[in-house]
Amino acid sequence: MTTPPSRLAVIDALRPGPEAGVYQDGVVSVRSWQGTRPRRQLGTIRTRHFDVHREGDQVHLIHCLRTDQIDDDLSGLLAEELFQPGWLRGPDLFERLFTGVVVSSAPDPEQAWSAFYRNTLRRVEQELRRPGGAGAPHGTVAEYAPVYRFVEQQLASGSVLEVGCCFGFLALRLASAGRQVTASDISAGTVALLNAAAARLDIPLAARAADATRLPWQGGATDNVLLIHLLEHLEPDLGDRAVAEAIRVARRRVVIAVPLEDEPDETWGHVRTVSLEDLAAWGAASGRPHRVIEHHGGWLIIDTDR
């Protein structure tokens, strides 16, 4: 039986575990293990980086990743080793285990997340400097680094609002390059992580919780609005509203990017596919100059100059 989402323990990514190197939230228990891995117990799934077993409704995971190995490629490791083979399922469980591995990788959560952000931003920069490199085997950072570069090339001059920013790596890059940047996400916990990371990295970035379908900014409040790999997480009617809100708030340009999938990838929390035809329909409905591009996924750029 699956626990209803409303009854699951809230994920608090900054809450210390019961001891250093351990994360617990009532749904998962995650422990860092350095040195020789313990002998595999009956009922345990063992992969290159993880040992996983269940006790009742709780998932127990042991990992052997060091702090310097923790970056956003952890997403790919969890997906390839545990979720794609079908050992585990569901975006909520994925998010909890991801959080648990990060938090358990250092003596305290703030130190762990600081390392995670620094490692990831460094990896993004390395990938952008790699001429046609293959990237890491699981490739999470390698896949979205060229997306970030393309976003940066499409922006009009001026300020930026990123909607659905998740961890906010793109927003941090843009702010560190001198842009006035605001980032938003529907998750208050994610926004708290990003604000803390920006402060530790000394990057002038403002982040706040906001619903993409009801943005709390007035019309024309910012020069650019970004919806980067957000719309595949929203049901079609909500996606329509998010696009309309982005057009309302953008003074000069809206930049939208989506993955082009045959089926929505549940592991990443995708609930729909978005095609180039869908992007063209949004562009036409806007009544404004626009273009649709295929480049590491699908793109819609709408000029809203007002």
Rank of each mutant, 00 (worst) to 15 (best):
P4T: 09
S6I: 06
L8K: 12
L14G: 02
G17Y: 14
E19C: 13
Y23N: 01
G26S: 07
V28T: 15
G35W: 13
R37D: 01
L42T: 15
I45T: 15
R48H: 13
D71N: 12
G76K: 10
L77P: 01
P85W: 13
G86D: 01
R89W: 03
R89C: 01
E95K: 13
F98Y: 15
V102I: 12
A112H: 12
R118P: 00
R123H: 10
Q126I: 05
R130E: 12
A136Y: 11
Y144K: 03
P146N: 10
V160P: 10
E162N: 12
G164V: 07
A171M: 08
A175M: 11
A175R: 06
G178N: 09
R179T: 04
R179K: 14
V181R: 07
A183P: 07
A188V: 06
T190N: 09
A198F: 15
A206Q: 12
A209Q: 15
T213C: 15
T222C: 10
T222A: 08
D223K: 05
N224I: 08
L227D: 03
H233G: 01
H233K: 10
L238A: 13
G239V: 01
D240K: 11
V249C: 02
R252F: 00
R253P: 00
R253Q: 08
R253E: 00
V258I: 14
P259I: 03
E261N: 08
D262A: 14
P264I: 09
R272V: 06
D278R: 15
A280W: 04
S286Q: 11
R291L: 09
D305V: 10
